[in-house]
Computed example of a mutant assay.
Amino acid sequence: MRIKCPLCGDRDSREFTPMGHETYMNRPDDEGWSPAWDNYLHLRDNPAGITREMWYHGAGCTSWLRVERDTVTHDILRVELAADVKRGTA
């Protein structure tokens, strides 16, 4: 599988580490333990089909990326810098 990093270009997927669903970008605001934190840490969907995930480019530019891919075919549909997604500039 190949991933096109917005900063480094087309790379082998072995340069990246999958870090889970994009909901990791939306941490609960409250401090301490709460049902929101329980849901954030433990409740995840595992869809077959198109999903958005966080990937870390550790063997390259060390950027966090949001990768939209099909979990059935492993086709990469879109790759964006997570910082741009969070700011709403992607």
Rank of each mutant, 00 (worst) to 15 (best):
R14K: 11
T89N: 02
R66Q: 10
D70N: 15
K86M: 12
L7R: 08
H21D: 13
E15S: 06
A36N: 14
A36T: 09
R27C: 12
P35R: 09
G60N: 09
A83G: 08
P6R: 04
L43D: 14
S13H: 10
D84S: 08
Y40T: 03
A59M: 11
E53G: 01
V79Q: 09
P28H: 02
P6W: 00
E31V: 15
K86A: 10
T71E: 05
N39S: 14
C8Q: 01
V79S: 01
R14N: 08
L65G: 08
H57F: 10
G58E: 15
D75W: 05
S13R: 12
S34E: 05
H21L: 10
D30V: 07
R14Q: 09
S13E: 14
I3W: 00
G88M: 07
A48I: 08
G60C: 11
H74L: 12
Y24W: 10
E80T: 12
R27Q: 12
N26C: 05
T17G: 00
M1T: 05
I76V: 15
E80P: 00
P47T: 01
D75K: 11
H74V: 05
D75R: 11
C8F: 00
D45G: 04
E15T: 09
D84K: 10
D29R: 15
P28T: 04
N26A: 12
D45P: 02
L41M: 15
P18L: 08
Y56G: 03
D38S: 15
V85L: 08
K86H: 06
D10N: 04
R44E: 15
T89C: 03
V85I: 14
T62F: 06
A83V: 12
R27P: 02
R14D: 14
D38R: 14
T73M: 08
V79Y: 00
P28V: 01
A90G: 06
G88F: 03
